[in-house]
């Protein structure tokens, strides 16, 4: 009993990982960092999915990584939402980075409500990117964020502690950021082998 399965269909479902880097998808959501784009499948952030940024401490380079994307989205008049950021986004610096503040929205929420708010924003489909800083979140919570991002076709970014690197996560992309030297390590990227060596930022 052998059903004939088209190879193309199998590859499209991404159930078979194909060696080599010939994923031909258009770079729809480039990160703005050429080196990083080169190693990510699809040439940028995974679309309609959750990406995790793992940091030793808040302030270890997450803005440097995200600013090009946020600037590109806000300039294209797409809404970016920060749900309960750990510090105040300093408006002059965000302007210097090219972010159009008219399309940036801050949501203040307690830790418990923040997850709900992030999920609602992702699911609504009216926000291009949603950033959140979940502290205590379990696998189920992450899965909900991932599903919400898929439903709303938004970019979800969750900044978490580097301690979570060993725990499995349903996020499509996991990046670890090192404060010094400023570099990014790809821990997991759906659809391709994670790049082995760290990439310098900026």
């Amino acid at each position: 009993m052998s059903a004939v399965v088209s190879l193309d269909a199998l590859l499209q479902q991404r159930r078979v990982w194909k060696g080599g880097a010939d994923i031909a998808a258009a770079p729809a959501q480039p990160t703005g960092h050429a080196q990083l784009d080169a190693v990510l499948p699809g040439g940028g952030w995974p679309e309609a999915a959750l990406s995790e940024l793992l940091l030793a401490h808040p302030g270890s380079g997450e803005l440097q990584l995200l600013w090009p994307t946020l600037a590109r989205l806000t300039r294209a008049r797409e809404r970016v939402v920060l749900v309960a950021p750990p510090f105040i986004p300093f408006a002059p610096a965000w302007l210097q980075a090219g972010v159009d503040l008219r399309w940036l929205v801050l949501v203040q929420a307690s830790e418990k409500e923040a997850l709900w708010a992030a999920e609602q924003c992702l699911r609504s489909g009216s926000c291009a990117a949603v950033l959140c800083w979940p502290q205590r979140i379990n696998d189920r919570g992450l899965r909900r964020l991932q599903l919400a991002a898929a439903t709303g076709e938004s970019l979800g970014f969750a900044c978490r502690s580097l301690r979570e690197a060993d725990n499995p996560s349903p996020a499509a992309l996991r990046l670890a950021l090192d404060a010094w030297p400023r570099q990014v390590r790809v821990l997991k990227s759906r659809g391709a082998m994670p790049a082995a060596r760290p990439l310098a930022l900026g």
Partner: peptide, 8 residues
């Protein structure tokens, strides 16, 4: 007050 924007 929870939802707001930033002004430089």
């Amino acid at each position: 007050e929870a939802i707001h924007g930033l002004v430089a």
